[in-house]
Amino acid sequence: MTPAEKLASLGISLPPVSTPAAAYVPFVRSGNLVFLSGHIARRDGQPWAGKLGQDLGTDEGKQAARAVAIDLMATLQAAVGDLSRVRRIVKVMSLVNSTLDFTEQHLVTNGCSELLGEVFGDAGKHARSAFGVAQIPLGACVEIELIAEVE
Rank of each mutant, 00 (worst) to 15 (best):
L83W: 06
V133N: 06
Q46T: 03
K125C: 01
R66D: 05
K62V: 01
F35D: 08
V108C: 06
V80P: 01
L76K: 06
A8T: 05
K51R: 15
Q105C: 07
L138R: 09
D55N: 14
G132K: 08
P15N: 05
A4E: 13
G81N: 03
A67Q: 03
N97P: 08
V92A: 09
M1Y: 10
C141S: 15
G45L: 09
W48T: 02
M1P: 12
L138V: 04
L14S: 03
E114P: 00
G38Y: 09
G11K: 06
K51V: 15
A78Q: 15
S94A: 15
L116Q: 01
D82Q: 04
C141L: 05
I89Q: 02
G57L: 03
A74D: 07
A8Y: 00
A67P: 00
Q135E: 15
G31C: 07
G81F: 02
G50R: 03
M1D: 11
E145V: 01
R29C: 00
L83S: 03
F120A: 08
Q105S: 08
A67Y: 03
I40V: 14
P16Q: 08
A49L: 05
G132D: 11
K6Q: 13
P3Y: 04
A49G: 10
V80C: 13
R43L: 13
Q77L: 11
A65G: 07
I136T: 05
N97E: 10
Y24D: 08
A64Y: 05
E5F: 10
G61E: 05
K51M: 15
G124R: 02
S13N: 12
V150K: 04
A127H: 11
G132S: 14
S9H: 03
S129V: 14
G50W: 05
I89R: 01
A23V: 14
S129H: 13
V119E: 07
T103P: 00
E60S: 14
M93K: 14
D82A: 11
E60T: 14
A8P: 02
H126F: 05
C141I: 04
D101S: 13
V34K: 07
G81C: 00
